[in-house]
Design a protein around this nucleic acid. Structure first.
Lengths: 195, 195
DNA sequence: TTATGTGGAATGAATGTTCGTTCCGTTACT
DNA sequence: AGTAACGGAACGAACATTCATTCCACATAA
């Protein structure tokens, strides 16, 4: 075996710090969360965090990139190419909802922190790369006349903006998420997207 | 006259504090903004703020309610009742965009602070009242078969979520706002809303 | 097997800084 | 002159970060 017991223990500790930071940043934001609070939530000493991340800002960027990449991975996985466009849309929509419900803290964190002034160049570049990917996909769809021939950013804003806002209503306790509401949202968004 | 020169000066000072807080909260969030920083931006002493607001939390709630009420006022003003539904939608859409562009800080602030744990009961009640108003309007529209017969919250999430997200792309410098893009967004959203 | 030495991980009290808030001498108005 | 607003120094609390120390897994020796 290539990983010693010590290396495992350290990897686990690093993971606990990231998990604790994700939970707290999602709930209270970056500036609203104290480093010693993250340490307490992770069950480690305050100083230990600095063995793994040289500053709070490095920590939040590591977390942002990790969560963003995980979400992108999940979005790509198992995309059906040989079904009608409507079914592809349904697949992506349901996948996104499933992921958001299963990774609420991750989605809250990434939504909250979209505006933060503490993201470094690498995090911002990753963000840009995600957008470019979605844009080029939509450009192809528009050429095939399955989605409206408008700027991809318009479609992306409406679809993910609508999903994110509805989820926020749910998570704030202002709306109960039923299958009927999901079906309504999926249909409304498809009407927005289709030619 | 009922207002003395002193009262005018004080009202102006209060206003300067609110304006400075709005600019800074919009840019850096509540926890990311220090009270002495607000004082400097407003051109007043740090202590002076506490003559007008008993705490930072009281200040942010006063600001939130002021901006929310101003936006609601603007939304209601001059709504055309005797034109087709499509024209009513266009009116609301253009009004919202105009308002957002003219009051960027206000919109950023309210978007940022939707999740904050520092809003008091009154602020949250105002938020709820806004939603109820929009919901009842959409219920009537659905009955008249001009908008889709789905939960109003679904429509609201898609429309305002889409607008807010596109504006963020613009304000983050990732998109230039042209009349063409606005027309595309208006059309896409109308397709989502209409029966 | 047991005892012991050792390097690096882990710690949490200590540090300097910055925060929200208060206090008080000064200024400005009546 | 008297009253109230004002600015900004001052305060304790809380912050991000550091560092002297402790702890522990493992290697070596008996």
């Amino acid at each position: 075996m290539s990983t010693t017991r010590l290396e495992e223990r350290m990897a686990d500790k690093r993971e606990r710090v990231l998990a604790a930071a994700l939970r707290l940043f999602a709930e209270k934001g970056f500036d609203g969360t104290a480093v010693p609070e993250i340490a307490r939530e992770a069950g480690v000493g305050a100083g230990t965090i600095y063995r793994y991340f040289e500053s709070k800002e490095v920590l939040v960027n590591a977390l942002y990139q990790r969560e963003k990449l995980a979400a992108m991975d999940e979005a790509m996985k198992g995309f059906p190419t040989d079904v009608p466009a409507r079914a592809q849309f349904a697949h992506l929509f349901r996948k996104a909802i499933d992921y958001a419900l299963k990774h609420k803290d991750s989605v809250c964190f990434m939504e909250h922190h979209h505006h933060g002034g503490y993201l470094d160049a690498e995090s911002l570049a990753l963000e840009a790369r995600t957008m470019e990917l979605a844009e080029s996909f939509l450009r192809v769809s528009a050429e095939r006349q399955v989605t409206k021939d408008v700027e991809p950013q318009v479609i992306i804003s409406v679809v993910w903006g609508g999903v994110a806002r509805l989820l926020r209503q749910v998570w704030d306790g202002h709306l109960e998420l039923t299958e009927e509401i999901l079906a309504q949202l999926e249909n409304v968004l498809w009407q927005a997207v289709r030619v």
